[in-house]
Design a protein around this nucleic acid. Structure first.
Lengths: 137, 137
DNA sequence: AGTTGACTTAAAGTTAACTTGAAGTTATAT
DNA sequence: ATATAACTTCAAGTTAACTTTAAGTCAACT
């Protein structure tokens, strides 16, 4: 029997999110069916952990909170909206593809800049001629 | 002789940024030495184009405007701050590495979700049993 | 029994990154 | 010459995503 109820503090630690954010997500409808103890404190379950993992993932993919709300609503209306879901996912997938390629480009840019400034540093130390950025582009 | 002066409109089109954003960047110090025509309109040069390319790149790498301002200031103070620059770049490089790996993870998540919902769609059309998400995780 | 600390709500506040508006000047088209 | 379009400044407004505050309840320790 794996543990299946968590306090807000545990969830907060687990996802490195302030408790206020968890309440905020709940208020927006991203976390549903959060139960309470007899003294009104929140109890989270495994399904919330999974939901939060999904949220992290989608956020990393650049989804806005609005979009997330929409997505989980679609998922609940198991009914018709599969095309809506697929549409949203497909669009997001394409966005992530461009983001990935942009980010790889900037990663290379960073690497070049680092090499360039390391070379400058070297040159200064050894009193050698200062390199030119144009040679690193 | 390659063209080397651009109106705000041209730059705006080139980078798909509203003119207001270009003025804003200038106000923040991201774009320096923007000259004016006799009638006070901005003239941009090749160096601004390059700067904006760098800005795009760094922004894709997740740098905030504040950080960009700081970076370009360091770059100007050719003097001592090479360690500061390298530090900033190195930190950013590491951040980009985790972002990249997170984003790749979410990309896979998206792909799985798409497969899953495509399968549901298929199943509905052909009146077959509805697949379970657990089989796709 | 009293204090400390973790929780609760609801509302107001914050921050980043723009964006818009108002009011004025200059440039272009008819 | 006159309308309209493109620029200018400066200040105020917007949006997303939280975050903080105030005021209260409840549980746990000493």
């Amino acid at each position: 029997m794996t543990q299946d109820n968590f306090t807000i503090k545990q969830i907060s630690a687990l996802f490195d999110l302030p408790a206020s954010t968890l309440r905020y997500y709940e208020e927006l409808g991203l976390l549903e069916g959060v139960e309470r103890t007899s003294s009104n404190q929140r109890i989270y379950h495994q399904n919330h952990v999974e939901r939060l993992n999904a949220i992290q993932c989608f956020k990393d993919a650049g989804m806005s909170i609005q979009e997330l709300v929409r997505f989980f609503q679609y998922e609940k209306d198991e009914a018709g909206s599969i095309d809506d879901i697929l549409n949203l996912l497909q669009t997001r997938k394409e966005l992530v593809e461009t983001q990935l390629s942009n980010m790889k480009k900037s990663y290379k840019h960073l690497q070049k800049k680092i090499k360039f400034y390391s070379a400058i540093k070297e040159a200064k130390i050894n009193n050698k001629p200062i390199p030119k950025w144009d040679d690193y582009k």
